[in-house]
Design a protein around this nucleic acid. Structure first.
Lengths: 350, 350
DNA sequence: TTGAAAGCGCTAACAG
DNA sequence: CTGTTAGCGCTTTCAA
């Protein structure tokens, strides 16, 4: 009667209760009654017994037997980060939808931890891995892939053509965003960099440069500061750029976190946005419209990233074939708000 | 040599390679060499073979054998919601730390889905369930609990004394928050309600009332509007309160989402915060300091909620004993910002 | 129409 | 010091 039992009911107990053998019970419970020509009588008898005892087949036994766990693994650098949380959500949804369960792990932005949890998940015989990788090398993931495990990299990626990637079109988004600045006449643009060497960072930088060149100028390497995606890096970078290069008229924060640092630094220096300095950024959040200075931004479609990655993985599992195409791009969306003005004639330190 | 193999290497293969029996191999690999007095020679032989073949014991086989999966289940109404994401994060951390893996599911705020995933997790033989439940009844969870599964409810809870709960001290937090308002002379205070009947909602309401009474007045039921935690509900409720009760001088949003709606409605009506209307809310986010009107708030310690819940669960598993104490409270923290002013003499519609 | 038996990969009790 | 055996809960031949 009860749904859950202290000592989970085994098939054997059901079979005994129904007075049949385990094999018959198994068949009756798995809709193989017709196929195996089981009598209506025994079929219902078994079903009754199963219901009465609250039988729930053990998926671990099923997994061992069938060599299929129905498990996805997902690894993100920080579940609490809304960006990764949004991706994780779509993965859970897609997994649940296709009858899979999700083993979620957090790598804390550490390659060591990542290695460790990859091993764990492998031992649990996940059937696919969706990962937002940390670090600059993907050998352990490529190995997994070579071993036949469907793997897809989300957000951070690697262009070596080995693994499947799902990434925003950072270069395009960054170029469009920058164009908004150059259109207003900005040419001396500071960039608050994230982690150099990572795909999003480098592609965004490339996009900025591309737009600057299209506008008849170029990216001044001295205007590029910072080395991490975090708040502190954004703060330091901003202080330094502003201190050393008062001629700068606009700032691009390469992540929403380091833009937070920029906001703090700018407030301390006493500059106003956009009058004294234009500021644009990446990614978005629910409160963006209510900021004191609503920032123009190029934001990623996290839901689509997660969705596309899940679809690719599921197709791969169901078809058994791996796709030729490795890089999958999700377009970014520009949201124009009120953080861009024409550059002032004079530097803001006059 | 390789870490991962297409066809996972079984213990048997290792045993064969090392020229010993599976049991010996098992023992050598599980540090029982001394205990079982295995010769150094064979021990290293087995270890070599295991390493060479890239042996990773199957946790599904181990689980079946030992009847222990080392799996936690977690269910949240929406992983993408930063509040639940933050809780989920601490759970993953605690789980990884104690050698457990985490099966994460999203209930989409639906009791049906919740029921369904609870079943799934049960079939996967999770050893404990941490859940942010949706809905007003907990019978299915109490059943789980009765079946001996450690269960802890986070955020939403039930006071019937059956299940373990970890919840913020909503009443206390709400009372403190309200006191900030009454101290400034506010007495006609509107409340944007969330989902009535849920523990956080009702306790917050109680806290507000308590503070109002302490200030010599009471909560006017007509000033309480809204019926959901979402943005739309907050918007509608604000429009109605403001329209029908111009005498109101302050508003309390019972969730950050419905406060978002309030912000929108207030902007439309053309009121300024805090000059025309004071506004306070619950919960917090990284950009809160940079809002056009930084809101004073009573915020929950999500990390502590997740941590405490995990600790309770792990203690329960390790000790085998269930705690007498059912309700566990995590204090809320008041962050004072700039959204409270003294009430104006006249109503804001004069 | 049903049952007996084998085996998925592992561990542990029991025998040598 | 090590091997044989049984069994976790299930599905699936193979045989009747």
């Amino acid at each position: 009667m009860n749904s859950f039992q202290s000592n989970p009911v085994s098939l054997k107990e059901v079979a005994n209760a129904a007075g049949v053998s385990v094999s018959t019970a198994s068949r009756a419970l798995n809709g193989k009654a017709n196929e195996c020509r089981i009598s209506e009588t025994t079929e219902t008898a078994v079903q009754q017994a199963a219901k009465r005892l609250g039988f729930r087949p053990s998926r671990v036994a099923q997994s061992l037997r069938s060599q299929r766990t129905g498990l996805f693994g997902a690894i993100v650098p920080d579940v609490a980060n809304p960006f990764f949380a949004a991706i994780a959500r779509e993965i859970t949804v897609a997994a649940e939808h296709s009858g899979y369960s999700l083993l979620l792990a957090d790598s804390h932005d550490s390659t060591d931890v990542e290695h460790h949890v990859v091993r764990q998940l492998w031992q649990r015989r996940i059937e696919a891995l969706l990962i937002c990788p940390v670090g600059l090398v993907s050998d352990h993931l490529a190995e997994l892939d070579r071993a036949g495990m469907p793997v897809v990299l989300i957000d951070r990626g690697f262009c070596d053509g080995r693994l499947m990637n799902v990434t925003s079109d950072h270069q395009c988004g960054a170029a469009e965003l920058t164009k908004l600045l150059t259109n207003q006449g900005h040419t001396r643009i500071g960039v608050l960099q994230g982690h150099p060497g990572t795909l999003p960072n480098d592609e965004r930088l490339a996009g900025i440069r591309q737009a600057l060149i299209a506008a008849g100028t170029d990216l001044n390497p001295k205007y590029v500061r910072g080395d991490q995606f975090g708040e502190a890096s954004g703060y330091d970078a901003t202080r330094r750029i502003l201190g050393q290069h008062p001629e700068i008229t606009a700032l691009i924060g390469l992540s929403s976190e380091n833009t937070l640092g920029a906001l703090r630094a700018i407030a301390e220096v006493g500059l106003r946005i956009p009058d004294d300095l234009s500021l644009v950024t990446f990614d978005d959040h629910p409160f963006a419209d209510y900021l004191a200075t609503p920032l123009t931004t190029a934001c990623q479609d996290m839901a689509e990233l997660g969705r596309l990655a899940s679809t690719l993985i599921i197709d791969r599992i169901e078809s058994g074939k791996r796709l030729r195409k490795k890089m999958h791009r999700v377009p970014m969306r520009i949201i124009e708000r009120a953080s861009i003005a024409k550059p002032k004639q004079s530097s803001h330190f006059n």
